[in-house]
Amino acid sequence: MIVKYFATLRKITGVQEENINAKTVGELLEIIEGKYGKEFHDSIFSGENFKKGVIILKNGKNVIYLDNLNTKLEDNDIVSIFPPVAGG
């Protein structure tokens, strides 16, 4: 599936998007953390939970409204990950 990174996450990953296959959102994030390390983890998680305001979309739906880390993924899904952008 295509994973897209936005805002500050692009500084960590160095790429705007890449192809990674995983069965769930949790597994996908584990793979991404394995590639980019603690800095990526700390941008997404606060302890065991997502940081408030972090947006992970599966085909335009925030996974908070689906099954969070257990949200199932298919190879043709698009996952977009971004922190909130607050400035004005």
């Binding site: 408030k52 305001g53 947006i55 925030n62 952008v85 607050a86 004005g88």
Partner: peptide, 29 residues
């Protein structure tokens, strides 16, 4: 919203489009 070298824009039309809480259920800490 703007920050550093990027920004985001989302039009919200009640009853037609997703709203801010569809995108992000709770405000960031």
């Amino acid at each position: 919203g703007v920050l550093a070298t990027y920004g985001m824009v989302m039009p919200i039309i009640p009853g037609k489009t997703a709203c801010l809480r569809c995108l992000m259920k709770n405000p960031p800490k």
